[in-house]
Design a protein around this nucleic acid. Structure first.
Lengths: 113, 113
DNA sequence: AGGCTATATCGTTAAAATGCGATGAGCGAC
DNA sequence: GTCGCTCATCGCATTTTAACGATATAGCCT
């Protein structure tokens, strides 16, 4: 038992449209913050990993990257602080997944350039 | 001959499609580098300024930003090194404009996330 | 309880980014 | 030629990032 489909660790990631403007000072700050979070190869890899596996991973990420566990955890924190990913404690491990809302927002902001 | 209308300082910005892959290690590096360049509010503002005025500006940028001239020049250099903008010396001043090819590339890479 | 595993956090070090004033290089006007 | 304007670059101080090992925390299992 206890086989409670651990597949999706993250809530459905709401699909409501984002009404915030795509330009202006706030948008600039937002875009800069998001882009900064993406502005590191390791973090891009992490995003790709999370995107590939629709489901979310945890320490698998550490295995995929040539970095120490603490370093990966740090990168995960940066991405989480930026809002691009979400983490949920699932038993002894933590399950991360992409925040599609934030990712859409990033795409919209970049698209608006 | 060489009757280059001084209005547009930048060459037509070629429209050929970009055939490079949107994923993979190289793409990761590329996206990280581009995102890093965008990852600063002042640089986002500069990009917006250059996008708004279809034509290109130079020291006007300094007037728009609350930063010293040397600092703005530094940011311009970062953007130029990343390939996102191009600069052309036009008499005593330098004329910057967006490199649409690189910008498109950035959008494609972000869109591929 | 005690041990195990998986993550997060701390402390440190080295490197890079940010910002500025001062200096230098290039061009046009006089 | 020299002056003045525009911009790039240098040098410096401060802050932030990146990386790691070591340590703490939290949940499972026996």
């Amino acid at each position: 038992m206890s086989d409670a489909a651990p597949s999706a660790c993250c809530p459905p990631s709401d699909d409501r449209p984002d009404l915030r403007p795509i330009e202006g000072e706030e948008a600039d700050q937002e875009l800069a913050a998001l882009a900064k979070a993406v502005g590191h190869p390791a973090r891009v890899q992490i995003l790709r990993l999370l995107a590939r596996r629709a489901s979310c991973v945890c320490g698998e990420i550490v295995d995929e990257l040539p970095l120490a566990q603490s370093t990966v955890s740090q990168h995960l924190k940066v991405l989480k602080d930026a809002g691009l990913i979400r983490g949920e404690i699932d038993g002894p491990r933590t399950c991360y997944c992409i925040d599609n809302r934030a990712l859409r927002r990033l795409k919209a902001l970049v698209g608006g350039l």
